[in-house]
Design a protein around this nucleic acid. Sequence first.
RNA 1: GCCCGCGUGGUGGAAUGGUAGACACAGGAGACUUAAAAUCUCCAGGCGGAAACGCCGUGCCGGUUCGAGUCCGGCCGCGGGUACCA
Length: 856
Amino acid sequence: MSRYEASQIEAKWQEAWEAASIFEAKRTADKPKYYVLEMFPYPSGKLHMGHVRNYTMGDVIARYKLSTGHNVLHPMGFDAFGMPAENAAMAIGGHPKEWTYNNIDTMVEQMKPLGLSLDWSRMFATCDPEYYGQQQSLFLDFLEKGLVYRKNAVVNWDPVDMTVLANEQVENGRGWRSGALVERRELTQWFFKISDYSEELLSALDNLENWPAKVRLMQENWIGKSTGLAFDFTLKGAPEGFDKLPIYTTRADTMMGPTFSAIAADHPLAKALEAQNPEIAAFCTEARKLGTSEEAMEKAEKLGFDTGITVLHPADPTIELPLFIANFVLMDYGTGAVIGCPAHDQRDLDFARKYDLPVIDVFKPLDSDESVQDVAFVPAKTEKVRYVHWHGEAGTEITCKEAMARTLATYEKNGWGTAQTQYRLRDWGLSRQRYWGCPIPVVHCDNCGVVPEKKENLPIQLPDDVSFDKPGNPLDRHPTWRDCICPNCGKPAKRETDTMDTFVDSSWYFARFTAPHSETPTDMAEAEYWMNVDQYIGGIEHAILHLLYSRFFARAMQICGHLPEKSIEPFDALFTQGMVTHAIYENAERKDENGRTIYHYPSEVEERDGGTFVKKTGEEIKVIPSAKMSKSKNNVVDPLAIISAYGADTARWFVLSDSPPERDVEWTASGAEAAHKHLSRVYRIASEAAAMDTGAGKDDETLLREMHKAIRDVTLGVESFGFNASIAKLYGFTNVLAKSKAGGDAKRQAAKVLAQLMSPMTPHLSEAIWDMLGGEGLIANAPWPVADEAMLVEDTVTLPIQINGKRRGELEVSKDLEKSEVEKLALAHEAVLKALDGGAPKKIIVVPGRIVNVVV
RNA sequence: GCCCGCGUGGUGGAAUGGUAGACACAGGAGACUUAAAAUCUCCAGGCGGAAACGCCGUGCCGGUUCGAGUCCGGCCGCGGGUACCA
């Protein structure tokens, strides 16, 4: 009998699949289509276990759908523009293009041995001019439909490197390379009008039944619809031209509680004051040093500067409040100005205590008359409280929600303000001051202004002759690339040098896969057939931005005639798989020559004497447990090592077993060998069955019953993303088969079904077993087994008996036994008799087929 | 800070509100073997007990329920996102 030789088996069957072209997707009318897509990878250089897990899950679905009679589209590509390529060019020389395409080649080479059922003929990278040219064409269409516009927005500016920094490149307010304190700088940038679709993107979430509830909730909160009060404070003592200060608040009911007002450092009024007062200028400069990320601003110590200006309350001008400039007010949200109500907002309370401002209770708990001290009173909006200081009658006991509604009505009636609906969602800024991205196809002409490029001139290609020896955007300093002819007047003009956010690239690739070489962004006939994505799979880290942008793009593309109406929501079902995490190994003894932390690869360290050390140098390691695998932290595991040692099926089996797909999984090396042992065992069991004589055995019926149960359970697992559960069942069924005394015919039948049930996970091994047992054709094409209901029926059931909710015994009863009969049997049970001690039970709960609980 | 998750044996994890720890890993004992590897059998949450069995036990505190890992409230810890990482 031959041994399980994974490398031979895998090469053989991968060739067989390729020869039969079974994964090439073609439109056909005779089968239902199924489009399964995993979020495409960034070509970082090496495939890691997170990719393997992601694509294996998609492959399980794709192969399962193929064997249940679907016409499957399962493509793969690369999200290939982005910062790391430019960083690599700066760090190690070379060109982003070369680096990227080399990485793509490497990763494809690493992916192929996994035996994924991918249609490689559809592969593309977003940095292919063929792709980004179509993206430029989409941009022009969006521009024409008024979905794109320009406005000023702030960026992180490194004053030493003279370059724009991404939020990730700002560490504690300093540029990551120069170490200089970051400033904010205002630039004119391009924006997509996603905020016009706020309501639509919000309400359509209700239709996404096959999306995880948590993702829908995150998107709902991100869009952030609120109803509140919009009003103007009257400014007193402000510079010329500043009479009113528009404010928006979601807590209208606390309008009698504010004791200060605050504006953002980027607010026009703050800028006007800055010009007059050096102290204010100093404060604003300091406030801007936080960088532009919301996280940095919200986490920073709350600081304010009293401008000396006051604001007058719209409902009662005798109420005069101080106006601060504060570092926690966001210019991008609302009007860039807020009211501070310390009694009912913790941040406002902390601020009030710090700057010695009064605290006014607007409402109090029903059962207390205590005033707010150090903890703000923030009840749920639906909780009833007693209003002591507001526009209604003092002492009224109502919910905050009700009080808000009444306040809004009062303000509208008196003309003090208006009820307004607002969204937190901001327009999508797509301009990037970087080279390695899709050029924005517009031209700046002295005569005509900003002019769209002509479609016949697309693609506007990136120049290859650029250098990265200096920081900043090489397109800006290229000698000739900017020079062009104005498409409008024909005079010399300059190209836009900003490129597009890489989220643009990933917002429509799913549509492009339906016709990857079309001369328009999509081919409507193909899109009509293949869209929507039936199952989309990817990381939870994309729950908001990527998925929201894609939803917007689907709408915009539909408006421009590039997607059918049904694709307004492009992803019918979404599954967010967990990440593969790994400990980070940080060198505890030294930093690198630039003073930066050194991270070691898992293969470089060893555990001994209760500690972790670098193998070569013996330096001690600080172990940071369980973090997202990240190239910059070096905590990645190379799947190729597993594949070359044990084979792709082992790697596939391993990443699917144990952890539920939606949960993060901590990579450990020990499990891979065990997975391989199991696959060898399955191979051996199948070989033994193949060698048995024909004829019946004594356990045939039992084995076949277990087989049908396995079909039912494994299928259920595959259909509900319970791959780990399916695998546990497969282990169970394998054990049953191994120990069964059934005859050759029954064993061969069971082994064939086992191979089929395993085939989405371990396709090569399954083909080998199928072949060994005389299966017809490829197992990949064989119809999925169906469980025989009659074989699943059980006659008796074991009921646990609880006494006061604790298990004290069990009862073997026929499946359909009457409740009253079960009660009688339970009361006659030894453990129950003992507990009752001659008395009568207080209550008996019988849950048919489940449990009996006797309360004594 | 804010939004969203997660927390169960030595480890990964299982469990429509109904027997907590399925299925595995690591571990222990044994069989086979000259021996090892491979394979096979058995044991295994903690504490007490020879055993039968008893008590405790799903991050912490409280609640709802005949019954809570699961539902509700409040904490703690970890992870993801936070609009220029992808």
